[in-house]
Design a binder for these strands. Structure first.
Lengths: 107, 107
DNA sequence: TTATTATTTGGTAATATAACCAAATAACCA
DNA sequence: TGGTTATTTGGTTATATTACCAAATAATAA
């Protein structure tokens, strides 16, 4: 793997790593329906607000979400809805895994 | 987040975590063109064969690739080419991030 | 001004990942 | 059979990630 290819896959991996956490996937899902402030997301998630804030900063650093400040609240907005298309593929993987599991049990 | 939603996002995160490593993204890219045995991938990647083998087992456990044994070689095959569609979105994120960087510099 | 709400940041401890080496296993060849 | 090649697994060490708490900052309300 040459240096250029390596840089390309490193960059892609950063985006994927940013997404690869259940809480952050929940946030992406939630933001696909509505922008949300940190306090709303914190309530929905049920973790410490500092934990949620750190998850949000990971998504922001990756360029997946952006923020808008209004008054004392900071709203997080999904910047890249195309990410959602991916999940139909992921669900496909999950279903095929489940079918495979089933076929082992039925044997 | 209720238990069911949590389980769904956990399952998705497992797939994403399996993909979120430069070497594994390289493998996915490579397998999208051709099935490959561990020895071929090891040469292309340039890491220890045990390292490559472990990356492959992560992809296999996630249901992203499958294997076929022929003689003394084990060929890895991409099971879910739909994953590739995702990368055009990821590239879009990367480009938009790059454009943003540029706009800061130009200011 | 003081208190309250919203958010981020720094610190710490627990857990997870990843790389390499060495060793085990399996198939093939001479 | 003995040697070589292909692959996986176990062990170790270094690094990264995550969660929570406590504290800092900023805006708002009383």
């Amino acid at each position: 793997m040459d240096a250029e290819a390596n840089a390309r896959f490193e960059a892609r991996a950063l985006i994927l790593k940013a997404m690869a956490h259940p809480t952050r996937l929940f946030i992406i899902d939630e933001l696909s329906r509505n922008e949300r402030c940190v306090c709303e997301l914190t309530k929905l998630i049920g973790a410490d607000v500092s934990t949620v804030s750190k998850h949000l900063s990971i998504l922001k650093n990756a360029g997946i979400v952006r923020t808008e400040k209004r008054g004392s609240k900071i709203f997080y907005i999904l910047k890249t809805p195309c990410i959602l298309n991916f999940f139909s593929c992921v669900e496909g993987v999950l279903q095929s895994n489940a079918r495979e599991q089933l076929s082992f049990i039925e044997k």
